[in-house]
């Protein structure tokens, strides 16, 4: 009898340990998603700022300036549900610059700045997408769903622009 109680006790404590382990693992993953999104978001803001800087250059072609400024502001002010589309539009606006050889800024250093930010953005996208995938995979586990280990944390999502932003 005693032996049975002891084994039940051991089993229960092991199970509780496993639950806390999984919960703290999840918590860490959610935190990682927040961090990776924050750095991606900051970089995207920087990109919008560069767009506005380019638009304000004296040599800039006025039509391009309007398109750039417009899409940069939309991207900055977009709600989370509109963000994907807005960032995509900004990418396209940058695309016109290069396509039509309209880049007005031989000596301003903005072209280099843009290239550098874009490079960082693609790394940040990779990092963010990875943390989202890892979190989602954990959230799908039965033990997590059954014991509501994720609490009230929202399920992280990847946005389509993360595939095509650059």
């Amino acid at each position: 009898m005693i032996n049975e109680w002891i084994s039940i006790f051991i089993f229960l404590s092991a199970f509780i340990w496993y639950l806390t382990f999984t919960a703290s693992r999840l918590d860490r993953l959610h935190h990682r998603v927040e961090t990776s999104w924050a750095s991606l978001d900051a970089l995207l803001q920087q990109r919008a700022a560069i767009a506005i800087e380019i638009a304000h250059l004296a040599q800039a072609d006025p039509a391009t300036s309007i398109v750039l400024t417009h899409s940069a502001y939309l991207a900055r002010e977009a709600k989370i549900s509109e963000r994907s589309e807005a960032e995509q539009a900004l990418t396209e606006a940058f695309g016109y610059l290069y396509e039509d050889d309209l880049f007005p800024v031989e000596h301003s250093g903005l072209s280099e700045k843009l290239t550098a930010v874009n490079k960082k953005i693609s790394a940040a996208i990779g990092i963010h997408r990875e943390s989202v995938t890892a979190t989602k995979a954990q959230r799908r586990r039965l033990v997590v769903k059954l014991f509501r280990l994720a609490g009230s944390a929202p399920l992280p999502v990847t946005y389509p622009f993360e595939d095509i932003a650059i």
């Binding site: 961090t35 490079k119 960082k120």
Partner: peptide, 22 residues
């Protein structure tokens, strides 16, 4: 420099390194 870019991205919001809670 590419590695340093990654460092900056990770550090921005992350806390300094300590022993894990467990």
């Amino acid at each position: 420099e590419d590695i340093l870019d990654i460092y900056e991205m990770v550090r921005e919001e992350g806390q300094p390194v300590t022993l894990a809670a467990d």
